[in-house]
Write a protein that binds this DNA or RNA. Structure first.
Length: 460
DNA sequence: GCATGATCATGC
DNA sequence: GCATGATCATGC
């Protein structure tokens, strides 16, 4: 052996010999029998470490307790920033066994406690994955506050399985450690779970995409943190979860008006994102987002209730490009990814009799997969089909009506214009080109106010 | 009066 | 200059 299999540092040093090379450089000419997606790690184990790949419950380098992970990062289209290419898949969740485990002695922790991360630069286009440049190799252990959050995540996932809800697991349930679908989602590859007769899709623990981007930027590229952290010490999470900690910090401010809160935190009441600014100041963070929210893909959304308890406005999401939307598949569509991987912190304000907005309540929410993969999917499919067959535009006075899914035909979601100005002019920045060459005001998916209201009323 | 198309205004 | 959270207002 050219390295000491009992020493993490020696294994790391040996991995660093890969930096600046490609996989092709180290492969013999008959490598092709190992070709295919996801096998870069196995190839590195076999040809660089002279180690026969295994799928044990033990870490890859069991004597050193090191799990080898090879993963991609990519350059973002805008600017000089890099992000993780995808989530990092760790071990498969054994629904039947895991309900008897506890985190500290879990098979997950045993295998994935100490990671050796090897990053290659993913490039778009028709490039063979053995030709990507291997740029970094580094040992990684979860920092102490992150460890507490990952422990919480593990417990959230396992408790859901204990409740007989393995089939309802969603990445949006947790912060850094997710239960990602793994392999085919077809009916026949579904698995049994211990406390329900419903079969559930196979899932694997994974470090979520945003958390991997954080690891890349902070520990690999050594970039300075953009946002302050809410949790300063792991002991803050000793007897509570992150979510509970956040809600407990917000609670004392319920009943205060937006104006009072803006003044208390010395903020301009008319600032565009005043409600989210107020929330972060309450949480003790002076930046416009919190490190934990960025890492966990938690988004603050404010809702205003009228005095009578109704909501006047629907909730908007980013605009989509017509010609891009029709090329997507539902399962990896932008819309599905948004709702399956984002957790929302809803901050609810309500008007009182003097038309003052006061803070009423706050809670975390992520969309249940059962709704995402039925109702929201239907709206998405109808949108795609309407775009493909040709949107029907009907001009009436100053307005142009269309036949995309409207709020009245689905309880949960609809499609509506969202731009600075309405425009049906070619190349106008407020318009987007339809598949048939016409142009139409930019549109986005909205969540219906009635659904939002139901979520609020169902929340604790 | 409501449904849904249109627009405002801040901030990057 | 545009995206986006917030809000307005026309047409049925």
């Amino acid at each position: 052996m050219r390295y000491d299999i009992t020493s993490p540092e020696s294994i790391e040093q040996h991995a660093k010999l890969l930096i600046g090379r490609t996989l092709r450089d180290i492969l013999p000419s008959d490598y092709s029998k190992y070709g295919g997606k996801g096998n870069i790690g196995q190839l590195i184990e076999k040809y660089h470490f002279d180690y026969e790949p295994n799928s044990d419950k033990e870490p890859d380098f069991s004597e050193a307790g090191v799990e080898l992970k090879v993963t991609g990062y990519k350059k973002l289209k805008s600017g000089n920033n890099y992000s993780a290419k995808e989530r990092l898949s760790l071990s498969i969740i054994d629904f039947m066994e895991i309900v008897n485990e506890s985190f500290e002695t879990s098979s997950f922790l045993k295998k994935n406690k100490l990671l050796l991360l090897i990053f290659y630069l993913y490039e778009y286009g028709n490039i063979d994955n053995i030709d990507f440049s291997i740029d970094f190799a580094q040992l990684f252990q979860y920092p102490d506050v992150d460890y507490e959050i990952i422990k919480n995540d593990w417990n959230t996932i396992v408790n859901k399985i204990r409740d007989g809800k393995a089939h309802e697991l969603s990445e949006g349930d947790t912060m850094y450690l997710g239960a990602a679908t793994k392999g085919s989602t077809s009916e026949k590859s579904k698995r049994h779970q211990p406390f329900s007769d419903i079969k559930a899709p196979q899932r694997a623990f994974s470090l979520k995409n945003k958390y991997m981007t954080h690891i890349l930027r902070k520990y690999i590229l050594n970039e300075k943190a953009t946002y302050e952290s809410i949790v300063k010490s792991p002991s803050d999470l000793q007897n509570t979860t992150f979510e509970q900690l956040i809600l407990n910090k917000l609670k004392p401010y319920y009943g205060k008006t937006k104006l009072e809160l803006a003044q208390q935190f010395d903020l301009n009441e008319n600032a565009k994102d005043i409600t989210s600014k107020i929330a972060f100041r309450i949480l003790g963070v002076k930046t416009d987002n919190a490190s934990e929210f960025e890492k966990a893909n938690i988004v603050v959304k404010s809702i205003r209730l009228e005095q009578n308890g109704t909501i006047e406005q629907h909730m908007s999401f980013p605009t989509f490009k017509f010609k891009e939307l029709i090329t997507e598949n539902w399962n990896d569509s932008t819309l599905r990814t948004t709702f399956s991987e984002t957790k929302f912190l809803f901050v609810v304000y309500q008007f009182d009799e003097h038309r003052n907005l006061y803070l009423k309540k706050s809670f975390f929410w992520n969309m249940p997969l059962s709704i995402l993969d039925s109702e929201i999917k239907n709206v998405w499919i109808k949108t795609v089909n309407t775009l493909k067959t040709g949107v029907i535009l009907r001009k009436s006075g100053k307005r142009t009506f269309n036949n995309l899914p409207s709020p009245s035909e689905n309880f949960y979601s609809h499609v509506r214009p969202h731009a600075t100005k309405a425009s049906y002019e070619a190349y106008c920045p407020y318009a987007d080109e339809l598949p048939d060459g016409r142009w139409m005001t930019k549109q986005c998916f909205w969540l219906n106010r009635e659904y939002i209201l139901q979520i609020i009323n169902d929340s604790k």
